[in-house]
Amino acid sequence: MKDADVSRQIQQMIRFIRQEAEEKANEISVAAEEEFNIEKLQLLEAEKRKIRQEYERKAKQIDVRRKIEYSTQLNAARIKVLQAQDDAMGSMKDAAKKGLLRVSNDKKVYKKLLKDMIVQGLLRLREPSVLLRCRESDRKLVESLIEEAKKEYSEKASMQSPKISLDDRVYLPPPPKNGAVDSHEPYCSGGVVLASEDGKIVLENTLDARLDVIFRQKLPEACKEAPVRLNNITAI
């Protein structure tokens, strides 16, 4: 083999080696660029999703907090209105309670009213024997009305005259002191409490009890139609 041939072969091999290396390097470069893009996009996408979720969660928290806050305030506002409503109703009831004092102080009116309330109680109970309790200050008045009430009851109910026992040991509370209807002292503005002989049926026909019943039943209606219905009162 000639030296020139050998030399040429070696140079050819060297060129081949270099070419292979450059091709491989080129492949690596291309792969690097691809992987660069893939890696970057993957990282971006994953992190962006996390961040987006984080801020969506924060935004939701704000919305929820805001809704809760508004709901709380709305509720407080409603309670405030209801309280004002209750206060207004309370004022009217207090005024009515004070009015009850004038009722029992009007002797003529109160006498008839008391008799009517006793008769009403008897009619509701329809018992042959009844225990009656009243205020101590009303005792004499009640005693003077019992026979008349019994008679009226007999006529209306077509029943035998009942036996009425006036409780002389236990009385209803006295009238409110100094007209203080808002004190915590028990008081009775007038009227009677009737009970069956065995004590199982009790009918409270006091002015205060009547006011409570009417207040609950009639007040909503009364507030709506007060000016008109005033002349069309039907009794309870």
Binding site: K80, S91, M92, D116, I214, C223, A235
Partner: peptide, 30 residues
């Protein structure tokens, strides 16, 4: 506004309502 309206209305009808309540209390149906 609601509370003010409420108070105004309550003041307007209060005397009538109280009178009505008392009339009911003192009207006995037998």
């Amino acid at each position: 506004e609601k509370i003010h309206h409420l108070k105004t209305e309550a003041a307007r009808i209060s005397d009538d309502v109280v009178a009505m309540l008392l009339k009911y209390v003192t009207s006995v149906k037998n």
